[in-house]
Amino acid sequence: MEKLQNDLSVVERTADVLQSSATRRKFLRNAGLTTAAGVVILAVGCKKDEPTTPAAGTVNLGSGDGGILNYAYALEQLEAAFYIQAVSTPYMGMSAAELSTLTDIRDHEIIHRDFFKAALGANAIQGLEVDFSKIDFTSRASVLGTAKVFEDTGVAAYNGAGKLIKDPGYLLLAGKIVSVEARHASIIRDLLQPLSTSFAGDDIIDNNGLDGAKMPSEILAAVQPFVKTPLSGANLPIA
């Protein structure tokens, strides 16, 4: 988590812009204030671990396997939106090979996104509004640095969610997707640091040769600054 936060802060520095609405939301939460239907409510005596009243427009990912699928759908929405932007407004000096690679990845993420949407049907969460104000899409370092964080985060998210899935069919689906995210992470990392150990670097792989694995709560906190729509994983399985 600390590593992820560090990575995210690097991305933030790259873009020089702080996300004001997320900061404000965080402030309100810390102050014990939440907004619902335009009314400011003082959450008196609210313990830290108790679920707080969700902010207006909060998307609840739901519970059980459906919740995990919506969690994945939310992450794929974020990734797809990011690469759509990266490909449609190429950074300065993007080579043809890089454009081709990023276009491939964009298509994979769009396919993942639309697959989850179709699979979830009426249970699917809404389309999320993203916030890429911290990303400088004209800068190679900013775009690829963000891509690296998103891909490593996606890998850790699926790896951490596997044990929360009840249905073997869904577990297999998650497995089919996570290795593709890992492939993306490897290639993006190689674009940033060619022919180095970074593709599966010691910064992210532990001493047992294990990739990251994080619980939804950690992942959601890390990606929320990039999603305007407030996400709640309060009902997701935790074991």
């Binding site: 890998v155 699926y158 790896n159 951490g160 596997g162 044990k163 497995g175 996570v178 290795s179 593709v180 995210e181 890992a182 492939r183 993306h184 992470a185 490897s186 290639i187 190689d190 593709f199 599966a200 792989i205 047992n208 040769g209 294990l210 990739d211 990251g212 694995a213």
Partner: peptide, 20 residues
């Protein structure tokens, strides 16, 4: 299961870089 998944994605990182 989680450890196996954590190895699984490493193998995918390896496969990707060698494919490249």
């Amino acid at each position: 299961l989680q450890y196996a998944l954590q190895i699984h994605s490493i193998e995918a990182r390896h496969a990707a870089i060698v494919g490249r």
